[in-house]
Structures are given as C-alpha cells and as structure tokens.
Design a protein around this nucleic acid. Structure first.
Lengths: 216, 216
DNA sequence: TATGATTCGGAGAGTCGCCTCCGGTTGCTT
DNA sequence: AAGCAACCGGAGGCGACTCTCCGAATCATA
C-alpha cells in the first residue's frame, strides 16, 4: 500500500503546471478546449495529462476544489471587518473580483453541478455569510428583506463580466456601487418580490432542478 | 441571376426549424454542440443543415441578427412609457428577462464579436437608450452619474442567471429590485468609480480589445 | 399533369480530439 | 553510485464531428 506516499517532485511540478495552464486555457477557449493543447501549453506529453487527470471531468473537479480552497482564503478578511455592513461590502467586492478574474469558474461550477448534484463543500463558509448578513441587518445598515443567497447571486452576476474577456473588466465596480446603494437599509425601498431562499434549498433548486417555491 | 428569387416553401420551413432548434440546442449544450445533432432535432438531413448554413459561424451570425431583430421589438413599449424612470425600469426588466430566457445569446454575441469586431447593428436603438437615460435624469428620478452603457451591463449581469439552467430563473427579479433601488437619485449615494463610457467606446473596448480609459 | 429547377437525405471521406501503451527517463533510497 | 520504482513522452488506434456529393424527392410553372 503506497496510496498515501508523497508523489515525486517532477510529478508535483507537472500537476501544478497543468492546473495553472488549464485555468488559462479554459478561460480563453472554454471548458471543452482540447486537452492535447493543454499538454502542449504545459510543456508536457499527452500521456502525462491523462495520468494526472483520468479524463476531463476529473480535471474540472479538481479545478472546482481549488476554487473552493481559494474561496476560503477570503473568509478572514471578510468576516473580520469592523462592521457588518463593511463585511457585506467586502464580500461582494472580493468575491466578484475573484470570479471576474477567473472566467473559467462559472463553467466549472456548472459542470460539477451536473456531474455531482449532491456535492456541496464549503457549508461552513455559507453559515458564516448567513451570520454576516444577520449582523449587518441588526446594525440597521443592510435592508431587511435580503438574504445571503441574494448576495451570492449578486456576486455571480457582477463576476459574469469576466466572460466577456479581460478588457472591460474594470467597469463592474460601477455596477457594484449601484448594487451596494440598493442594498442599504432605507425607508423607501421597494420590497423584494418572491421568496428569499436559504443556501440548502437554493442548492437543491439549482443543482437538483427542484421546482422553485411559489411566491405568495 | 436568381439571387433575389424567393426560396421554395420547404426550404423556408426547414430554415425556420433549424433556427428554432439551434436556439434550444445551443441553450442546453453550448454553442459548440454538434450540428449533426441539430439535423436530427430539426428532423432534417445533415446536408440540409450545411446548405442553409455553410458552417457553424454562419449559423451563429444569423442567430445574432435574429436576436437584434427581437431586441428592436421591445423599443415601442420601453420608449413609450409615461415617465423616463418607468422607461428605465422597463428597459432593465424586459431585456434582462429576454437574455435570461435566451441562454444561447451571450455566447452567440461573444462569438460574433470575435468574428467581426466591427459589426455593430442597432445603433439607433442605442441612441434611443441614451435619450431615455437623459430623460429619467432630467426628471430627477435616475442618479446622475449613471450612463446608458452602465444600464446595458446591468442587463447582461441580470440576464446571466440564464446560464445556470432554467430552474432558478425566477429569482433574478429580486436582484433587479435591488439594482433599481440603487439607481434612484438620492442625496446620499456613493459616486460611481471610474469613467462612464458611451456605446461607441464601449464597443471598441469590448470587441477590439482597446485598453480601458484611465479612471482619474 | 408534365417538366424542369430546386431542395432534400444520408452515406462516407477527411479531420480532430480523446485516451492508451510502453520504451525510455528521472528521481528517490540505501 | 547502483538499483528500483515512479513517472514521462508521444505515436497511434479509435470514436466523434464536419462537410461534401449526388441520386431521389419535392415544389413551382404552364
């Protein structure tokens, strides 16, 4: 049994290179870009690609996990902010920037959702975001009818500009500012339509194709 | 010269079917889905696909033009609203709904942007949106620092939920409400960062990869 | 209804990408 | 430094997709 043995140095190096190049390749040519091309870009033989990742799905899964790990790194800064409202600002800003700069991410997440509808890592992060929202609302800074899921969707939306190539990336911050102004608690806000979801039911709905709840 | 002769009825029918099925196919399997599959779905031979559309790019181009035509249909309702602010609401609501329900559109638009960076139909529609923004701002209803391009980007963002499959589509209206609340003129708004672009320079930036202007 | 032009269908040639296989190489261990 | 296990490279088989070609079918016209 050598299953837990550390891999050789050249193996680790190639694995790393493949992940790095896969991000770039998938970003510019889409998630179905040829893996032979990945081999060329990583300066590696085709066989090496398939030893590290038995097939495309395995590679996509690993990119997903890499993404989740990167996500965790934001937690300290976001959750450690002075006020709940500042946490909300940081949550939207940091995560939207991250998504926008990682144009391969949305497609990777969708693919994994198809592959493994029940896979849901990072639940404790979601819990923390729930707390953050509650805190900002208790401060009277964040509008009361918004949920953590609503903010997550806003992150995806703001980050979606990344799909259009790198050049007009800087401009999503204007939209972020508009969104933040729309998130502040105010006496004259329009009530949000439909129902506010929690992460669990949102996951079921988007991954398992559960029908959406009726908005009464 | 028979170039202007009307095509036969069966030809028109097949052309139409192919467009309809292409929208569905590209929506669920992506813009690079096999065209043989398109032939099967349209109940047509493979040869027929390639007679109507010499290659995939030709098909994508036609879907693009179809989209622009559909877009024009929204103009009367949007521009004919009672107030400028109501026009803004309708612009965001109708167009975001349309994009969200047409998940093939963003990819089609990006592809055409690569193919033909200088192609820019529907300029008069853009002009109308500029006017709409000016009107709503003159009313004192829409914040002054926002541009028509900012609103277009918001449309793309809101519509981007369509990429995640049909089931949580209904929920973007909550985000729309937030955005609208952030667009209202108010004394205490955060000024928008960066520079507000006009459609022409925005087009150059996103299609021609022109560097973004410096935000002073 | 007969004739000719247009369009259709789908078999198949050519190409491209996925993945395997194995002789050669590299890196660890003693 | 020697030996062994792990890893690498890339040629090539295989399946999938694109696009062409032409005999058969369909439509317009008289």
């Amino acid at each position: 049994m050598s299953s837990s043995a550390s891999p050789r140095r050249d193996a680790r190096r190639n694995h790393e290179r493949l992940l790095v190049e896969a991000k770039k390749l998938f970003a510019e040519r889409g998630i179905d870009a040829p893996l032979d091309e990945l081999a060329v870009r990583a300066g590696v033989g085709a066989g090496t690609v398939y030893r590290h990742f038995p097939n495309r799905d395995a590679l996509v899964r690993e990119l997903y996990d890499t993404g989740v790990a990167e996500l965790q790194d934001f937690a300290p800064e976001i959750l450690g902010a002075e006020t709940g409202w500042r946490s909300v600002e940081l949550y939207l800003e940091r995560l939207a920037a991250w998504v926008a700069e990682s144009p391969y991410l949305p497609a990777v997440m969708r693919r994994v959702a198809e592959l493994d509808p029940s896979y849901r890592p990072g639940a404790e992060f979601e819990e923390a975001i729930n707390g953050l929202v509650a805190r900002a609302q208790a401060e009277g800074a964040l509008r009361d009818d918004v949920t953590a899921v609503d903010l997550s969707i806003l992150v995806d939306m703001l980050g979606s500009v990344g799909q259009y190539g790198g050049t007009y990336l800087p401009f999503w911050r204007r939209q972020l500012t508009i969104v933040l102004d729309g998130l502040r608690a105010r006496p004259d806000l329009t009530p949000l339509p439909g129902v506010g979801l929690d992460f669990a039911s949102f996951h079921d709905m988007s991954h398992r194709k559960t029908p959406p709840p009726v908005s009464r």
